[in-house]
Amino acid sequence: MKDETMTRPVLRIENLCKSFGTTPVVTDVSFDVHPSEVIVIIGSSGTGKSTLLQCLNLLHLPTSGKIFLEDQEITAPGVNQDRVRRQMGMVFQEFNLFNHLTVLGNVTVGMTRVLGMPVKDAEKKAMNELERVGMADHRHKYPAQLSGGQKQRVGIARALGMSPKVMLFDEPTSALDPELTGEVLAVMQKLAAEGMTMIIVSHEMGFAREAADRVIFMENGRIEEQGPPDRMFTRPESERTRKFLSIITTGKAEPPSGSLGQDTL
């Protein structure tokens, strides 16, 4: 399954660049995503991880470079972007559930309004997806009545409802209280085990270690280093990767040259 020479990539990113005005945010990023592959993108804040992710489903339009979804170049002029987006699920840091719809409504609205499914079929499929994330019992509740972890699981079910070819997760646990991240990560782990193709921007190193097939470390809008998690976390090649991981895993930065003076404390 993970033999990269055998499978055709689901997603191929070639020399992707994105600037806002004159500020480059993503610079010359290329990588392939293979079926069932789980990629975790890590890196400091402001290194373009989220922007990169939102370029992939064209929520941001790349400044240059190409993206292929299976055989179709989705960055080509004249491509129906709405059609592209419905094939890729996206899960947001802030959940972004539709506030006026119930849990069930959140999952069905895309199926009925975008895919044109009959309501009965959509509800049946939605219930399946809600079972998958363990939220079926809450189907009649509104987003404001849910905890953060529950909201995010509904967010995942909403994306799954569209039967996406790839799931994009934009820091799915960063807005959650620590005790709520577990339930979301468990759902993601289950999806990964079921063979879902996933690209995840995350600071959850434990999850990356366990679930990822590949870890991509980004710095200053570029891919600094990538590889399987056991190598990335134990023997990173790049000095910057090593520094970042040491900060993340020990929870403290390497002391700056010279000791902290009393006056700074």
Partner: peptide, 16 residues
């Protein structure tokens, strides 16, 4: 604005 973003992410057009 995030509501619109989420709507676009599941493939809705701006009008939808």
């Amino acid at each position: 604005r995030d509501q619109m973003k989420a709507a676009r992410a599941i493939g809705m057009s701006r009008f939808q």
